[in-house]
């Protein structure tokens, strides 16, 4: 390229984190796919935050079993009257309320597990890619071994053995995802460590941690953010699948996968019990995936 000074005249270049975040959002505006994704994710985030306000009923209250969507609840001594927007399940809990509260479960556990997996994966990837040699050999082989295991087989064995609890699910996700993250980070580091600015840092005697964390890592953030978005989708699927297989969070608290598991034997007679949770989880995953695609599209433009 020729002597390009600034690409974006409309938004001033700022050094503040807030300004840069605004820039990123402004960029996303140019990808309608990314916008749809962001809207879906945002919808569920708002739903999760406002769950106590917008849920029509207590999620675990057993009111009237086997109600079709739109059925009216006349009210009783404890609970006020209302409409079962999406019907009720086999023991009479309001599906809409359970979906709303269930979004909290997913949106707490999936990001938390992903962030933890990223911490582990980034540490391993930085070490493997920067030091190379035996550190790399060891970590890469370890990752190969864990990754050679079919993921779900791994989850099923770990969780069946240690029991289904939130902590075990998060632990299993970290164990199974961090090798994949490590590989991506390692690949990026192997590329970035040959840049002249890294050589410049080395020639002025910077310590290794500084070079890894300050010189290399910030420049790997683009692909990592896209990957994190995709991975959030995978983790959401995983939590859903585990719930569906009966290995998810223990009942009675609402969990989308668990809701399908509990009612799937009645799916043919009462499709609403399973279809709505399926739509909920699919839309959230779709949101993550579309957002990732939009972010990638934007990152490729520059």
């Amino acid at each position: 390229m020729s002597d390009a000074t600034t690409r974006d005249e409309t938004i001033p270049a700022g050094s503040g984190a807030l300004l840069r975040a605004l820039r990123a959002i402004a960029l996303l505006r140019e990808s309608w796919i990314g916008m749809i994704g962001a809207a879906l994710v945002l919808f569920w985030m708002v739903t999760a935050i406002l769950a106590p306000v917008i849920a029509p009923f207590e999620p675990n209250a057993t009111l009237m079993p086997f109600q079709k969507p739109g059925a009216v609840f006349p009210g009783n001594a404890d609970v006020a009257a209302g409409t079962f927007l999406l019907g009720t399940d086999h023991i009479g809990r309001d599906i809409a309320s359970r979906l709303i509260w269930g979004s909290r479960t997913v949106l707490v556990h999936a990001p938390f597990a992903t962030v933890c997996a990223y911490l582990v994966g980034i540490l391993m990837g930085l070490a493997a890619g920067y030091y190379r040699g035996w550190v790399d050999d060891l970590l890469s082989r370890l990752a190969d071994i864990i990754l050679s295991f079919p993921v779900l087989v791994l989850y099923v064995i770990i969780i069946a053995h240690f029991g289904a609890s939130a902590a075990n699910i998060v632990f299993a996700i970290i164990f199974a995802s961090s090798p994949g993250i490590m590989r991506i980070v390692r690949g990026l580091v192997l590329d970035l460590r040959n840049r002249d600015y890294v050589a410049a840092a080395q020639t002025r005697g910077e310590p290794a941690w500084w070079i890894m964390v300050v010189e290399i890592l910030p420049n790997a953030r683009g692909p990592l953010i896209v990957d994190a978005c995709l991975r959030l989708g995978y983790v959401t699927i995983t939590i859903g699948v585990l719930g569906f297989l009966g290995l998810g969070l223990p009942p009675p608290d609402p969990d989308w996968g668990g809701m399908i598991n509990e009612t799937r034997s009645m799916a043919l007679a009462f499709p609403h019990m399973v279809v709505f949770p399926c739509i909920a989880i699919s839309s959230l995953i779709l949101g993550f995936n579309l957002l990732a695609d939009g972010l990638r599209e934007i990152s490729l433009r520059d």
């Binding site: 399908i260 739509i279 699919s282």
Partner: peptide
Amino acid sequence: SITGIVTTSVPEFASAVFLSAIFVF
């Protein structure tokens, strides 16, 4: 591309539910 993203976003158990609803029910 978009079809690909959408179908990959539906977990197997969910598409099993949807397809059953269509083809069985």
